[in-house]
Amino acid sequence: MAAEKVAMVTAAGKGMGAAIAKELAATGYRVALMSPSGSAVQLAAELGGFGLSGSVTEVADIDRLVRETLDKYGRIDAVVNNTGHPPKGDLLSIEDEQWHAGLDLIVLSVARVLRRVTPVFQAQGGGAVVNISSFAADAPEQAMPVSSALRAALSSLTRLYADRYAKENIRINSVLPGFIDSWPETPEIVARIPMGRFGKTQEIAKTVAFLLSDGAGYITGQNIRVDGAIVRAL
């Protein structure tokens, strides 16, 4: 891994985002991190990178993250689009504004980042993106209807982007985690998982690092479940 490679990670202040940032820094990336709290700023300082307080739902914050990453490092080689969780509720009790908030968080935030980093990748001759999604994209859950519907849309966006930019050596994949240890664990949920345990944030981080690496150079447009086999679909 060349030390000059740069990775941009959103929602990197805690949980899977923080684990991904730590893993990428450990494998040689310079990291540029953002989260709504100050946690990403603190973590970036610990990892020798830089961080901003901001949200993926704010266009100005995305602009600032991309601009300041380029100002500081001169390039962006990898992007991890991580977000928080959209509103929950009974399917038909969810109001329009909650659906719009979920769309903004899960799908439009990724589209906005891609619009800004794709010209950078093209100028550099390539780049790689990983979107953090959910197993619910493939196996919708009544407990999370907004996430289920819009993560499926993110899977489609991932496929479309891959088709459009593969010839330019730009890759994109989505990771679909199952229940991970950053989520409250209950015996009822564990009983649903064939592996009999929650996944670890570090397991997600290592999957992401692989997908961004040269070792995954022929993998693009995929929606990869890391879920302990909770999804039974082929």
Rank of each mutant, 00 (worst) to 15 (best):
G54H: 01
S37R: 09
A26D: 12
T10K: 01
R151V: 00
L43P: 07
G84L: 03
P145V: 05
A26M: 01
W183V: 15
A205R: 06
A152D: 06
A2N: 12
S93I: 03
R232V: 12
L154Y: 04
W183A: 11
V117D: 06
A229E: 09
R75F: 03
Y73Q: 02
N82A: 10
T220S: 14
A139Q: 14
L105S: 05
L176K: 06
R232K: 14
L92P: 04
D227Q: 07
V146S: 08
N131Y: 02
V107R: 00
G126V: 09
K88A: 11
G51Y: 01
A11D: 11
I230R: 04
Q122Y: 09
I132W: 02
V31I: 09
V41Q: 13
A78M: 01
A153G: 11
G102K: 06
A139T: 12
V120Q: 10
R232Q: 13
A153F: 00
R112K: 10
G15P: 02
I106E: 00
P36I: 12
I219W: 06
L114Q: 10
G28R: 04
V110W: 03
Q202T: 15
E185Q: 15
V146D: 07
P140M: 08
S109Y: 00
V129Y: 04
G28N: 10
A26G: 15
M16H: 02
E4L: 01
D90E: 15
M8F: 06
V175S: 01
A101Q: 14
A78S: 11
A60H: 09
E58Q: 14
M16F: 04
G215A: 11
T10A: 00
V6K: 04
G127W: 07
I189M: 12
Q202G: 10
P86A: 15
Y218N: 09
V120R: 07
K200M: 11
A209M: 05
G74S: 04
V41I: 15
L70F: 08
N82T: 05
V79E: 00
R64Q: 13
R112H: 11
G199L: 08
M16I: 15
Q222N: 12
A45N: 12
L234W: 13
D138K: 15
R67L: 10
T220H: 00
D90V: 14
D104T: 11
N169C: 05
R225Q: 08
G15D: 05
N81G: 00
R30C: 05
A191R: 11
A143Q: 12
S182C: 13
T27M: 02
S148L: 04
K167N: 12
P119I: 07
E168A: 14
G51F: 02
I172T: 09
S213V: 02
K206N: 07
D181K: 07
S174F: 07
N169I: 06
R151F: 03
N169Y: 10
G54L: 03
